[in-house]
Write a protein that binds this DNA or RNA. Structure first.
Lengths: 185, 185
DNA sequence: CCAAGTAGCTGTATCTTACAGATAATTCTC
DNA sequence: GAGAATTATCTGTAAGATACAGCTACTTGG
């Protein structure tokens, strides 16, 4: 955890000020664009005239996708994968159960746990939403040649990997700090 | 709504089925990653140990950036640029005024309007946040060589342009529909 | 000068998520 | 094993971000 405290870069060869500036500018551009993209998220979904986006909450969709891809899971595993608080997953899962999208059963291997599995209806709904979103992005990226789309996909995948990794690291850090603080009073 | 029942792909020229499939898969990947990135937004900001992110709301930051880049503006112009509802901007701007980040003056050229301008304090705050975010992204992208970062920035910029264009188009569409409907009854 | 349109504001509602605390079950330690 | 520490889930509550509908004040085109 000490690699974390250090701003990771102290004295630096003064030689290459211009390159440094370009690096800083790049970060600024990336930061700006990611912020914009995140802010636009809701607007984009709402802008989808096909209304399919309304049938699944953000987290619900992500949960179904992950259950589909990785099989039945308990709440904690979902929360960890999705970088969400357990309480959030619990609530989403409750709503999804009410709507018949998933089933919840006690974990046979751990009496505290609950295993969540998608239902047929849940998977159908997910696929419908997925298709609608694909159409939406096909519209947004109408002018992009395939090669560019491939590059975009690759970049986003790598970015997300690193964002997730970073979020997990920081979250773990914060947990540690909290429990350390609790010792002090 | 009938497109909904169909699993999205009926008879289709069998000629190029493979390329089509790859295109669909690409869209799926992009859709997945954008959704994930948007969902991660809050987590990422919260994960920033430097806490600067707390001092500015999402929209407040975007507003200051735009005021900085494009000069004083009235509320509507800000809303249009940021793809936000006017009421949202109004509220943000009120809070920002309370906090001394911007000043609001009647528009000399239009008695209905209000011109919003950043204060020194506002710009300082924005720059602090910007720097903190740049640090954050430098950490997230620690393993990325400059060339990759450049590609990422370019891709995100183009994606956002198209997302914004699409959101505006759809928004206009919806407005038209609404007013058309109003005529009917 | 009046009708139609526009800018901004306020009330209210929705969605998404987190943190803190409670409960129950599990695992570790001696 | 008995008690302590840990973990999984759930519930209560709160905060942030944003939109839509309706209001007032102002502007503008005939």
């Amino acid at each position: 955890m000490s690699a974390y405290d250090e701003p990771e870069r102290t004295a630096r060869p003064a030689t290459d000020g211009q390159a440094d500036e370009e690096r800083a500018d790049l970060l600024g551009r990336i930061e700006t664009e990611v912020a914009m993209l995140m802010r636009l998220g809701e607007a984009t979904r709402r802008s989808d005239p096909s209304a399919e986006h309304r049938v699944l909450d953000r987290a619900a969709y992500a949960i179904l996708r992950h259950l589909d891809a990785a099989g039945p899971q308990n709440v904690s595993a979902l929360a960890a994968y999705l970088v969400l608080d357990g309480s959030t997953v619990t609530r989403q899962v409750s709503a999804m159960q009410r709507d018949g999208l998933i089933v919840r059963e006690p974990d046979p291997r751990d009496g505290r746990g609950t295993v969540v599995a998608p239902t047929e209806a849940g998977l159908n709904r997910m696929n419908a939403v997925r298709a609608a979103r694909a159409r939406l992005y096909d519209g947004i990226l109408a002018d992009w040649p395939d090669e560019e789309r491939r590059v975009l996909a690759r970049m986003l995948e790598r970015l997300n990997e690193d964002v997730v990794a970073h979020a997990r690291r920081s979250r773990a850090n914060r947990r540690d700090q909290r429990s350390t603080n609790e010792d002090l009073p």
